[in-house]
């Protein structure tokens, strides 16, 4: 049994705690949050060790792994301290605010030979994963353009009082929402060389952007467009979609379905000429415990599996996440 700890009990932290707590190979022995209110509530419901200082938690508990779900500005310090204690680390996205911090965390994780994973859960969604397979098999021929978007109703009015409303803490649509789309697009075609025409638009927020629009320029003439808006009331929840254009067709994918249009059939992939549609029901492997989406459990299970199987070349590594942060950096500089 691995002994796990959770640092940060916000929306994601609590969700990870719930999932990890049911994992057959993990025992969650300690959790940490700076809010005494949250700890006070938990103390009435559980007998695991509660801390408001993560350093104390690391000193007093013999942990094997940790899930860090704190604001991005705190990642460098907490991740480094955990790695120095010899823990395998899962940290929420985005990975870092300063690229040098990211590089230092990667070096540390590699030197300590610890599993390091970042919470870009889209890679654990069946439909998005299937598209990666299709791209690698070249089903739509040479890819010449892709469009990545995400829309959702996060900030619908001017009042904003949490860390997500502060740029210095890693708040804003670019870091919070767009990072998911950028990471997914990188997963499909690699990172862009350059970006152009970037708009970081404020709609309701005072200190951060609410929408991100940009053109991405890759090698070999490949182009991309990014369109992300978290002030979109017409969407019930975050809706991420990628459309990929190739010389043999087109792929449109969101978390529920994967629509593939082909000029020529690809029998080896069981794809016909014209439209093919694959649904989440046939693309999603079952999980042992479901909370909000199979992908949240699947990514946690993957993290645990990498630890027990001593797998250090995992997907969603710190290095992979740093590539996403580098694109974010490019977008900020271009805006």
């Amino acid at each position: 049994m691995l002994k796990g700890g959770i640092i940060g009990l916000g929306k994601m932290g609590v969700s990870h705690y719930s999932i990890l707590n049911t994992h057959p190979e993990v025992e969650v022995v300690a959790v940490c949050d700076t809010s005494n209110f949250v700890l006070g509530c938990l103390s009435k419901l559980t007998s695991i060790s509660l801390f408001n200082d993560y350093k104390k938690m690391l000193d007093e508990c013999q942990l094997d792994c940790v899930v860090i779900a704190t604001p991005t500005s705190s990642h460098m310090k907490i991740v480094s301290d955990c790695l120095n204690k010899g823990l395998h680390v899962f940290v929420e996205k985005p990975f870092c605010l300063k690229l040098d911090d990211g590089r230092r965390m990667i070096d540390l994780a590699v030197s300590k030979k610890r599993v390091n994973q970042v919470g870009f859960h889209n890679k654990f969604i069946g439909a998005f994963r299937k598209v990666k397979e299709f791209i690698d098999n070249g089903i739509i021929g040479d890819i010449y353009h892709l469009h990545g978007s995400a829309y959702g109703p996060v900030v619908l009015k001017s009042k904003g009082s949490t860390w997500r409303a502060k740029k210095s803490e890693g708040g804003g649509c670019l870091h919070d929402y767009a990072s998911h789309v950028i990471d997914l697009m990188n997963y499909y075609v690699g990172a862009p060389k350059k970006v152009s025409g970037t708009v970081l638009k404020r709609i309701f927020s005072k200190d951060v952007e609410d929408a991100v629009y940009s053109t991405l320029l890759y090698n070999n003439g490949l182009t991309g467009q990014l369109s992300v808006n978290w002030s979109e009331e017409t969407y019930r929840k975050m809706s991420t979609m990628v459309t990929i254009y190739g010389t043999n067709g087109k792929i449109i994918v969101d978390r529920q379905e994967c629509k593939i249009y082909l000029k020529k059939a690809i029998p080896s992939c069981k794809l016909e000429k014209g439209w093919n549609v694959l649904y989440t029901t046939e693309l999603t492997p079952p999980v042992w415990f479901y909370l909000r989406g199979e992908e949240y459990s699947a990514q946690m299970d993957y993290f645990v599996g990498c630890i027990t199987g001593n797998k250090l070349d995992n997907i969603n590594s710190f290095a992979s996440a740093l590539t996403t942060d580098m694109v974010i950096d490019m977008l900020m500089k271009d805006a």
Partner: peptide, 13 residues
């Protein structure tokens, strides 16, 4: 979604 949006916008408290 009513609560999730509120938590994201204003924190749990």
């Amino acid at each position: 979604h009513k609560y999730a949006n509120a938590v994201t916008e204003e924190g749990a408290l």
